[in-house]
Design a protein around this nucleic acid. Structure first.
Length: 912
DNA sequence: GCCGTTACGTA
DNA sequence: CGTACGTAACGGCG
């Protein structure tokens, strides 16, 4: 048998299980960075400034994975230095014959070191020694100090470190497949125990280190010898006993073997410049990290780092949740609610989606967890008898019983589908958090709990995998998890409510967003009817248009090409056809519509026209196909409105998005013809605000002339044109009108003279003159716009008329691009946001009037400045009047809010 | 299957 | 080198 130096006894095994040891992850940074470099093509990883980042990316990604999977408490990374080591002093040819460092790799080690610094992970390098020696020292000394150690190295010499408390992760290929090697794995693979691995390597040799071994001796032979005699030295002592050519070789190369063994022994006794305490995982330096990720242009990793370190950086204790009371009958329910009368309850409603349901479908209520201060409970509404059901329903419908939810809209929808009412909602933490930070992209309760409560919210009860017994047969764990969520919602509310109050945003929540959720529930439930047959016709129609355009395109170039692939198009346009180069993008030159149009005008090449026709038809086909798939069993399309996504306060629409149905092109408008009035209703009605953003701008700027123009109901663009160009209104030409129109629209976006010139196809000088003439004539607008940016710089946020804020931290950015973009966002946010405020108010008022008058007509869609309603028979006159009134009076501005109403049996027809 | 990129529809 | 969104296809990674 071989020499196994530290046999594992049963006692040792159970001891190590009983007392969990802290765990160090120590990496050979250099070898792993190199692995990453060769695993990922550097041509795909470079920044705008031309820095290559593939090794940094791969290394970081691998590190995060290790931290996630192995959950170390401590981490350190070792690096080589460039100078001589004791090994090269000893043996000049050590690691000789290696190729020069590839150019794109240079600098990436420094970048990794900077990143580690930002993550508060110590990097260690020591003169005269290699990273592997540092790893060995951390490993041996750490093991002795009571740590479990995980070594990550691309060098097989690390195997000698393996023992009961030391595991080596050695990459098989690239940086994605890094299996753990323990003693058994080494034995399995090489036939020797880890302690003898260097003996084996000494005999076989290591090509990568330029250490030749005994000719004719491979791992199999070496392992056989080691298992017979012991160490490599002991093998040499018995060299005489080995017959044949290999025996001869062994005797001839004995010195080489001794040299190899000396050089591949890792040094475990280095005096490390870093203490174990320093290696403990802590919070990263957020600013430093941010700067590096921006420089490296890492987006996904930024998120992953946030995730990984939010958890492992601050292992916050799970907050104790009061024992879950099971509310299984009327008595239990009665007792629970009696004891908590008047208290705010948080509800975590678990909703189940039936298989095959369309994304927007309401889902069913599977359970409700409740939490109030000091108590939690859980109830399955489907398992209750009549008396208990009545008790629960009475509570849910009790407007005097204050409730807090996270994503109340989803719950309301599910309740409504069961015919239940949910009243008394005083907060929706998803919306509160959105009002506080409208830019944050995640609505996830766990993320918000992390941000606002600095806790980690446990995941749902662990899923049982195949072949494993379910451990939660009585659902205790899942009930506890649900109660934990409810309790988190309750405490989130306690944190958020004062924040909103402080910022004067309680009315925005209470009087606008919360009631709006209910309106949206109704709109989503209503959906809009579609003519499926027309939809299918359009699919076929656009399909044949695509086919035609495709044929024409192929004919124009004499071969086939994937017209949907920008990459392939670049080859055709700029290599084969050698057309003039367009605007540069990351992957070469753009093939976007504007550029294709330009190219067509310049060259008249028939391929371009065919390509553009194909693009148009394909886009339209894709739109109608998406709609076709979204038609529910009731023949209607039910979109979902996202109330907490858009940073400005707008709604967004998804699954499908009904806020981007084509309208500008004739062909596109045909799609609007498939949206029809539903059965039992008389007509569709559209009502849209005319020029609402311009009106808001004028109101905010208090420009007297423009206020008057709106009050007089003048043609705004004609009016502005006459002033800017100094002519009578009737002498404003259509060219003049379209110029000031573009300018006016561009104002609220921070349009530059360059942008304006591009859009109008005029010189930059002319654009600049136009802008200055505009501002000269309407000075208040300019004063307002620069004031907004100034104020935003001062406060760090912008505000709408209803107090909706948008934080703009990038205003302080040192990066020009980021700062400029933030300034444009600052210009736009109050205007777009106020428009959002206004139409939201209007929706509430319209809904209230419809309900108050007991009309059957209903709101169906909102498209930012437009509402679509379905009008019941005989109600057209009343509905038209109330919609005009309520939209027009949604907010009192210095200018009138003009509303344009149209009626028709299709959305298209109603738009007139 | 995930993710970034490109392109494009709306206000 | 104009804001705010959502969706889809492609292609490189896994």
């Amino acid at each position: 048998m071989g020499t196994r130096l530290a046999p594992v006894t049963d006692a040792a095994k159970s001891a190590s299980v009983d007392a969990p040891r802290p765990r160090i992850l120590v990496l050979d940074g250099h070898s792993m960075a190199f692995r990453a470099f060769y695993a990922l093509n550097y041509e795909n990883f470079y920044t705008d400034k031309g820095e290559f980042t593939n090794a940094v990316y791969g290394f970081t990604s691998m590190l995060l994975k290790m931290i996630e999977q192995r959950e170390p408490t401590h981490v350190a990374v070792a690096f080589d230095l460039s100078g001589p080591t004791f090994r090269s002093e000893e043996y000049e040819e050590y690691k000789g014959g290696r190729d020069a460092t590839p150019e794109p790799f240079k600098g990436q080690i420094e970048m990794i070191e900077q990143l580690m610094h930002a993550l508060n992970i110590p990097t260690i390098s020591m003169e005269g020694y290699e990273a592997d020696d540092i790893v060995a020292s951390v490993s041996s000394q750490g093991q002795a100090a009571g740590f479990d150690v995980i070594v990550v190295s691309g060098d097989r010499d690390a195997f000698q470190l393996i023992d009961d408390h030391v595991t080596v992760l050695y990459p098989k290929k690239g940086v994605s497949d890094i299996p753990a090697m323990d003693a058994d794995a080494v034995m399995e693979k090489y036939g020797v125990w880890p302690a003898n691995y260097p003996d084996l390597a000494a005999l076989v040799g290591e090509k990568a280190d330029n250490l030749p071994g005994v000719p004719g001796v491979g791992p199999k032979t070496a392992a056989k010898w080691i298992n017979l005699y012991g160490t490599s030295e002991q093998v040499l002592e018995h060299a005489d006993e080995i017959k044949g050519k290999t025996g001869e070789n062994l005797r001839a190369y004995a010195d080489d073997v001794r040299r190899n063994r000396k050089l591949n022994a890792l040094v475990r006794t280095l005096e490390l410049p870093v203490s174990f305490e320093d290696m403990e995982l802590g919070a990263p330096d957020a600013q430093e990290l941010d700067a590096l990720f921006t420089r490296f242009e890492f987006k996904t990793l930024r998120k992953r780092v946030a995730e990984v370190f939010a958890v492992s950086a601050e292992p916050v204790e799970q907050v104790e949740v009061p024992e879950v009371q099971l509310l299984a009958d009327a008595a239990a329910l009665g007792e629970w609610f009696a004891a908590g009368a008047g208290a705010v309850h948080a509800l975590a409603v678990q909703i189940e989606q039936p298989d095959g349901a369309l994304p927007g479908a309401p889902g069913d209520v599977a359970s409700i967890a409740l939490a109030r201060e000091g108590a939690t409970a859980w109830v399955d509404p489907t398992e209750l008898d009549a008396a208990a059901t009545a008790a629960l329903e009475a509570y849910l419908a009790d407007a005097a019983a204050p409730k807090v939810l996270h994503d109340a809209k989803a719950a309301l929808k599910a309740f409504a589908a069961r015919g239940l009412t949910l009243e008394g909602i005083v907060d929706d933490t998803m919306i509160s958090a959105y009002i506080d930070q409208p830019d944050r992209r995640s609505d996830d309760l766990a993320d918000l709990v992390q941000i606002y409560l600095q806790e980690s919210l446990e995941e749902e009860a662990p899923a049982t995998t195949q072949g494993e017994l379910a451990l939660d047969l009585d659902h205790t764990a899942s009930r506890q998890a649900a109660a934990r969520r409810a309790d988190a919602v309750r405490r989130l509310h306690e944190v958020l409510a004062p924040v909103l109050e402080q910022n004067g945003q309680t009315p925005l929540l209470r009087d606008l967003e919360l009631p709006l959720s209910r309106v949206l529930v109704d709109m989503e439930a209503a959906g809009i009817a579609v003519d499926v047959a027309r939809l299918d016709e359009l699919i076929a129609d656009f399909g044949s248009q695509m086919e035609q355009a495709k044929e024409a395109a192929y004919a124009a170039i004499g071969h086939e090409v994937n017209l949907g692939s920008p990459k392939q198009l670049q080859v055709v346009l700029f290599e084969e056809l050698d057309l003039p180069k367009t605007k540069k993008i990351k992957t070469g030159y753009t093939t976007d519509a504007a550029s294709l149009q330009e190219l067509l005008e310049k060259t008249g090449h028939p391929f371009l026209a065919a390509l553009m026709a194909h693009r148009d038809a394909s886009k339209l086909k894709q739109t109608v196909e998406g709609l076709r798939k979204a038609v529910a069993e009731d023949g209607r399309i039910h979109t979902t409105y996202a109330q907490t996504i858009a940073a400005t306060g707008r709604l967004s629409s998804l699954n499908p998005n009904l806020q981007n149905i084509p309208v500008r092109s004739e062909e596109g408008r045909r799609i609007r013809e498939v949206f029809t009035v539903g059965e039992g209703f008389e007509t569709l009605l559209t009502a849209d605000y005319s020029q609402i953003e311009m009106r808001i701008l004028v109101h905010l700027a208090q420009d007297e002339a423009l206020i008057q123009a709106f009050k007089d109901g003048e043609d705004l663009h004609r009016f502005v044109g006459s002033h800017v160009f100094g002519v009578e209104p009737e002498d404003v030409t259509s060219a003049m009108r379209s110029k000031v129109k573009a300018m006016s629209y561009g104002l609220a976006y921070g349009l530059s003279s360059f942008g304006l010139s591009k859009q109008l196809n005029i010189g930059v000088d002319e654009a600049r003159t136009l802008m200055s003439d505009y501002y000269k004539r309407f000075g208040a607008v300019k004063t307002y716009l620069s004031g907004v940016v100034e104020q935003a710089h001062k406060d760090g946020y912008t505000e709408t008329l209803l107090g909706r804020r948008r934080n703009l931290p990038d205003l302080k950015s040192d990066i020009r691009q980021a700062k400029d973009a933030a300034e444009r966002a600052a210009l736009n946010a109050p205007i777009q946001g106020t428009a959002a405020d206004i139409i939201k108010v209007a929706m509430l008022k319209v809904q209230a009037r419809l309900e108050g008058a007991e009309l059957a007509s209903r709101l169906l869609l909102q498209v930012h400045d437009e509402l679509v309603l379905e009008v019941a028979p005989g109600e057209l006159e009343a509905v038209t009047a109330l919609v005009e009134e309520e939209m027009g009076s949604a907010m009192e501005l210095s200018v009138p809010l003009d509303v344009h109403v149209g009626v028709g049996t299709t959305w298209h027809a109603a738009a007139h």
